[in-house]
Write a protein that binds this DNA or RNA. Structure first.
Lengths: 196, 196
DNA sequence: CATCGCGGAGAACGCCCGTTCTCCACCGTC
DNA sequence: GACGGTGGAGAACGGGCGTTCTCCGCGATG
């Protein structure tokens, strides 16, 4: 059952990582349907037979890519938030994290929004993963707002600002939506009259 | 040059409308790549030869659908805004318009955001149309804000809220993002201290 | 009425996709 | 060294796509 490393043959886990890394990059850059299994095979340097032995079907690779991105997003946001000190700054740290992300040269928008637009109408599995990811983010923001002593309605507003910033930055191809959203969030937070 | 109606054969303009209506509905419901030319031909009740004589290629149909939607969106938003009286209400009317739209049973999100996610990475033409559409909306909001005597920064914030509401409502499958965005917009507008 | 030409209906074509299968080189074992 | 089996590389397959082509019926014209 347990795997033993052989000289020339990488372990299944390493190979899965390599495939998912390549799939993530290609799907994110050009879209899921635009990247075929042959291109993925070539990019990952994995034999086709191995690819299907590891994942079974393209759908499974897509789902795994999305789940990985969701975990990475959560990790990144948490790190940015936890680096902030006051509850107010923790709320606004979300938008600073967005600003850093939008500024990256390979920024192509939110892969969940993109995937939902591409496959949400035809793939219930993709739709469910995207919905769960966004719901988790909203819950996280709700927790931050609650910690700050803000009203629940503020959480939904802050989440909408974050979504709008991602959409706007992706389509415009410029990162300024993050600072605009941050300013709006600061106004909303202040208007909510947080304690402390 | 000018067309003359013949008994059994519809005019080109009528046929174009029929094709674009069918394409709009199918592309919006299930995505562009998921709908083939054969299905569109069947749905529109138009012979394949006529379809290609009218449009030349699928790309042209896609572009035309998006341009039509852009004009329809502009018309709808303007109507909602012009029905409002005060400058403040005119700004918030945008979100009331969103609320009515999100509540429709066939709401599947913003076709521009969806199309950008699906084809933005591979089709410069689609990307350009989507970018132009969103830029036009931002300009329109900027005009409303200017008319209300608000600062330019407010316009970008209000546009981001509208984008975020569309994304959130589409993915969640529920319309409440519109009223949440409206509340946030009202807070931002009030915080901007508009005159009058 | 014979003929011409145009338009309707859908088959045909070439290509690409996701998935499976074939072939062969290479390894451990007797 | 002979051999069985496993994994690498990529061709093969069935299906669906966008686009083009063929065939046929019909109405206009002499």
């Amino acid at each position: 059952m347990s795997q033993v490393r052989t000289a020339g043959r990488p372990l299944d886990d390493e190979l899965r990582e390599r495939v998912l890394d390549a799939a993530d990059r290609l799907y994110y850059e050009r879209g899921i349907q635009a990247v075929g299994m042959d291109e993925l095979r070539t990019a990952a340097g994995v034999p086709m037979k191995r690819l299907y032995a590891l994942f079974g079907a393209k759908d499974a690779i897509v789902a795994e890519v999305l789940r990985r991105r969701s975990a990475q997003w959560e990790t990144g946001v948490r790190a940015a938030v936890d680096a902030a000190t006051s509850p107010r700054e923790r709320l606004l740290a979300v938008y600073d994290h967005l600003a850093a992300w939008f500024g990256q040269t390979d920024f192509h928008g939110c892969i969940f929004i993109n995937s939902f637009g591409e496959l949400g109408g035809c793939s219930p599995e993709v739709a469910a993963i995207v919905r769960a990811h966004k719901a988790a983010f909203q819950d996280y923001v709700a927790g931050l707002v609650a910690d700050a002593g803000g009203p629940p309605a503020l959480a939904a507003q802050l989440a909408i600002l974050a979504e709008g910033a991602q959409t706007t930055a992706a389509i415009a191809g410029t990162p300024e939506a993050a600072v605009q959203a941050r300013a709006a969030a600061a106004t909303l937070v202040d208007a909510a009259g947080l304690p402390g």
